[in-house]
Design a protein around this nucleic acid. Structure first.
Lengths: 340, 340
DNA sequence: TTGTACGCGTTATCAT
DNA sequence: ATGATAACGCGTACAA
């Protein structure tokens, strides 16, 4: 076992000073050609690589980006990570991923941890619990210390920073309009409780689309699901007594649960009921029937977030402070779960 | 904007020396009670947190674990990450995730990068390209420098380190035996080309199960898929001319593709053909029919890997070197895609 | 009880 | 052309 090589060791080995080695490796003109060659050869031979930690300490930047997300076993978030990673790598940044598990405490913990020197900035989607508590002091604090933060997907007005969101309302409208265009008359929605901002917005889009098309808004066709664990059962119960011919689900999970329930009740998709989901994941693509969905373009969101963050990081601190909100467009992907 | 607080600033502010502050904050008995209180109060007020980078440099350890995986948009890998993260956090470790995108170069790049001070050790699953090239010098080098590495899932004998794998052969046998028990007579397999070790092993399990039950092994019922992009088409073609009543797919994707193809050909699952998959993901659970699969317990694998790594990290370097291979048991999850 | 000095690995500035 | 020194932020052995 041969431990990592440092400048000091090279210097001792070659009987020169540390700074000579440093300069030689950086091809400084100050150093004589012959010693330069000698040092370079030695370094290459023993595969010298500068220590990132020492560089970070010296430069006061780490060239790494911290991502904190509520959960990782979730298609959408993985696509976002993937997008961030791509851009980050291009620009020479590293990515640290931490999970909040939707817990406020873990979000604070991870943020604090990474904020103490480990990262130059954050890309973050709020934990569910954080949004319930409406406590964002950990974020404002980090921002106050001069670390750039980019919020995505689950964002909140109270935190002043760059944001990347999708046009939830417009996306939802696209979905519902598609149902209307393909002939649905009674359109229901499977959504989440209102404190989940995306649920709320998508519900708003649903209502707006109905209103704009002179469809009545029937509260009885709106199911707000609190408990993800029991969503399947709840959806089954709901559908049993609802005579809908169109259904908009605010996520993939709800959509497939609905299709399963409908089928068990002898109703066919899309013949009897058309279903549109939100989030375009593996499930949507491979389900039978494959799901018509509003695609969120997570990769693009991640890429946007990374760009925003890196822009901030590489801008001089004295430049004017301003926060952008980038809206990534959704698009409707038509598949088999709706007619036509 | 108030920049991060350092010991130096506290010292200056309170007109004491840096080390006094340091000691006071660590509750050292050397420091007088009153100054200690004063310093602590100040630190708490302005929310002092020590800089991790400086600590890493000093202690020559980072308390972070690097995970390098081939892709993140993949249910299995996310469960592994989740498992690693849980254990790591319990033990006070951080997790950095990097992606190789199945590229050898990116794997080497990320490994080198993280190896230079950013992490104390690695948990890694080999990129497909790396296994094709059979070039593992980057790993052996890192190991030689004294950094512990734990390989999981896609492992290889050539690299000497701890490993976490599943009993692919036994898992595959469980799947095939289940098909046999439920009355299947002609059992096919949808697998990958042999250089993907898991594909190879699962194929072996399939063959062993058949042989042990005195079923003939018919090469014509074995489909080795190279190109994941076109797997759907390939599987359709294959099934068109194969009169099987049981099918073992080495992953979720192949399983659902097969079911889709069968259905299009007018064959029902499980009435005409029973299908068993491998890897228990969202798709398996939610598909209709839901998939009988061999569950890989990714979370447990991640947890095991993290334990192995942290054990190595916290052991004294002079202790005997030995490498363990932990085999995480698979289990068959019976659902609707097989009979009974 | 408090402060000084040193080292972690690196680079930049200033001497020689 | 080469080397010594300081600094990044922290902890600690040792000196005062």
């Amino acid at each position: 076992m041969r431990p990592k090589l440092t400048l000091k060791q090279i210097a001792r080995e070659l009987d020169v000073s540390i700074s000579t080695v440093s300069k030689a490796l950086k091809d400084s003109p100050e150093i004589g050609e012959d010693t330069k060659q000698k040092i370079k050869a030695f370094a290459k031979l023993y595969n010298y690589k500068p220590n990132n930690i020492a560089l970070s300490l010296k430069n006061r930047k780490t060239k790494t980006i911290g991502i904190i997300i509520p959960e990782i076993v979730h298609y959408f978030f993985t696509t976002v990570i993937s997008g961030v990673e791509q851009v980050a790598n291009e620009k020479g940044y590293n990515v640290i991923v931490c999970l909040s598990n939707n817990s406020f405490d873990r979000e604070v913990l991870n943020l604090d941890l990474l904020a103490n020197g480990s990262t130059d900035g954050f890309i973050l989607s709020l934990a569910k619990e954080t949004m319930q508590k409406e406590d964002y002091h950990h974020l404002t604090e980090v921002i106050n210390q001069g670390m750039p933060v980019v919020l995505f997907d689950r964002v909140v007005d109270e935190v002043h920073c760059d944001k990347v969101i999708i046009d939830d309302i417009i996306g939802a409208k696209k979905a519902v309009e598609h149902l209307i265009e393909t002939g649905c008359k009674k359109i229901g929605i499977l959504t989440t409780v209102d404190y989940v901002s995306v649920g709320k917005l998508r519900t708003r889009g649903y209502i707006e689309a109905l209103e704009e098309n002179d469809y009545p808004v029937d509260e009885d066709l709106i199911l707000k699901i609190e408990d993800m664990e029991n969503s399947e059962k709840e959806i089954g119960e709901f559908l049993k007594t609802r005579d809908v011919d169109g259904l908009f689900a605010v996520n993939e999970q709800f959509a497939v649960s609905a299709i399963g329930a409908l089928r068990r009740q002898g109703r066919n998709v899309p013949e009897d009921v058309s279903v549109v989901g939100f989030t375009d994941g593996e499930l949507s693509k491979n389900f039978i029937p494959s799901l018509t969905t509003v695609s969120q373009h997570g990769t693009r969101m991640g890429a946007e977030a990374a760009h925003l963050l890196i822009d901030k990081l590489e801008r001089k601190p004295d430049e004017v402070e301003s926060y952008k909100t980038v809206i990534v467009e959704t698009s409707l992907v038509r598949r088999e779960s709706t007619k036509n």
